[in-house]
């Protein structure tokens, strides 16, 4: 059973997750079907900057985050940004969207100049997230858990971060049991996606270098 405090925690995180989104004027531009290669590149980089800002605003609303040491806050955000953004993008691709939208977004990424060897694992990850059919509470909690990973580089007080992450893992575990009673391994599958994210993170630096050269 989820306790009253856990419900409050979930509500705060879900509200923050829903409140902070990419602005509509940018999403409208993303859905335009006519664009040059340069326009596409500039827009995708604008989206990336926006995604980081959205991520920071979400994170500021995670209970306890702003009470962490300031430099540890920076280290957590820096260390998790790439993973959190891939997870957020995958969640966007999992949503029910009007016909054709997914195809337009996919096409932009395929035409971006990013090499196929990086696009394939990225879209495989999006597919694996889609297949999980997470509810919004699970999505928001998983994002928060990704950000509050204690072993990121340069984090000084790992225990303080663990103290924030553990209650979220606990409520996510309970939620998985309640939402997916026929799938006792569901929570483990979710955590498995975090491992997949680490692999994407590892490729990301290489992907950017290759993209820039293209």
């Amino acid at each position: 059973e989820i306790t009253k405090e856990q419900r409050t925690l979930m509500r705060l995180i879900v509200d923050a997750h829903n409140r902070h989104q990419i602005p509509q004027d940018i999403t409208k531009k993303l859905l335009q079907e006519q664009y040059s290669a340069e326009e596409n590149f500039l827009l995708l980089t604008e989206v990336a900057t926006n995604q980081v800002q959205v991520l920071v605003e979400f994170t500021k609303n995670i209970p306890g985050f702003l009470s962490l040491d300031h430099e540890d806050q920076i280290a957590l955000l820096k260390g998790s940004a790439v993973e959190a953004m891939f997870l957020r993008s995958a969640q966007v691709f999992s949503r029910k969207m009007p016909n054709g939208y997914i195809e337009v977004l996919e096409e932009r990424i395929r035409k971006s100049g990013i090499s196929e060897e990086f696009i394939t694992p990225m879209f495989n990850f999006y597919k694996s997230i889609n297949e999980l059919h997470m509810v919004e509470e699970e999505q928001a909690l998983l994002t928060a858990i990704t950000i509050l990973t204690p072993d990121r580089p340069y984090v000084k007080d790992q225990q303080a971060v663990e103290r924030l992450q553990e209650p979220m893992l606990d409520v996510l575990r309970k939620l998985c049991i309640l939402q997916h009673p026929q799938e006792p391994q569901y929570f483990a599958r979710l955590l498995g996606r975090l491992t997949e994210l680490r692999t994407l993170n590892h490729y990301h630096a290489e992907m950017l270098t290759s993209w820039r050269m293209n």
């Binding site: 409140r19 902070h20 989104q21 602005p23 900057t49 980081v52 800002q53 959205v54 920071v56 605003e57 500021k60 806050q73 920076i74 955000l77 820096k78 940004a81 630096a205 950017l208």
Partner: peptide, 21 residues
């Protein structure tokens, strides 16, 4: 390294300031 500095700068600015929805 250039990416990392750029990312950190965006994070620091966003942490200090307010980002309008």
């Amino acid at each position: 390294p250039g990416n990392s500095i750029g990312l950190e700068a965006i994070i620091r600015k966003a942490l200090m300031g307010k980002y309008d929805d």
